[in-house]
Amino acid sequence: MKRIKTTKEAFNKDLAALLDKFDVFAPSTKQGKLDYLNITDPEDITWTDDLPYKSPKETVFPRVEEIMRFTKDDVVPTANVKPVLLLGAKPCDIESFDVFDGVFTSEKGLYIDPFYKERRDKMLIIGSGCAAKKPGCFCDERGYDMTFSDKCDAFVALDGDDMYIDLITDRAEGLFSGSDCPPREVNKAPETTLKIDAHENDIFTTMPWEDWAMSCIGCGTCTYVCPTCHCFDIRDADDKGEVTRCRLWDSCMYSNFTLHAGGTNPRTTQAARYRQRVMHKYVYLRDNIGITACTGCGRCIRLCPGGINIHDTVKDIMGRTGKK
């Protein structure tokens, strides 16, 4: 891993040259709250050690995405999206792409999702570290180092006006100018202490889900701000006969998520929906793709109007199943 040193000014200049080629997403406060926003001017980037409010999953999994267009007797997939450069992604958010890759492009999933794959293959990720945990953050317990991740193409660190760039993959070579400097010292990742080893049936009916989900109002914010939540719906839009088919986010916390056309609903209570969210992340997906779908970013905890805490729920499950 090579490391180069440059200045923020020079970096911004190099970045400006990339704006034509990439849709650049970076942390910015230009809309108020700190979020990963599509920026058109490097000056709009908010260089910070803070974790943005929402996750960057929109860069590969847009909230609404046209996937195809119907013609009279054919259907044309929507193709050739502009590549995304995700800049300043925090280590927990970088980890989340592993989950998305597992669901959408791994062989275990049987089918490859072509729309996700196209975006993901073209995407360039430049990470940056966190200085401190926010209230609710628990990335360390999930085994992630908040200061660094090498699951991206490059990693930047700002020191005053100086900028250090770790070049991790070949794709990051030559994008930014700078002078060589000694490589970064990588910390050992912390041990994963928060995970569920119990079998799904040992947890499904035996845990006090009603108590845990008591204050849930079914708003779905947890799933919308989550970096790994990926459930979606497909809807058609008919604009005066021009029919497009779109994929859009859905949420297992909504009451109509599993509602059949005939009126049957296998998941009728908010407690069952909360159970689905926790189990899907910590049990089901681990069984299916081998990854626990939680990065410990704490967003769902900080933004839950009901004060529901997935970290405490999982901790409680670990205690009750005797696997600490």
Binding site: G109, Y111, T258, Y284, L285
Partner: peptide, 19 residues
Amino acid sequence: LEMRMTCGLGKCGKCNIGH
């Protein structure tokens, strides 16, 4: 079984029962 489905490809999360 009959379940609400969107994708049919094991991705959309709707017809999830256990793993």
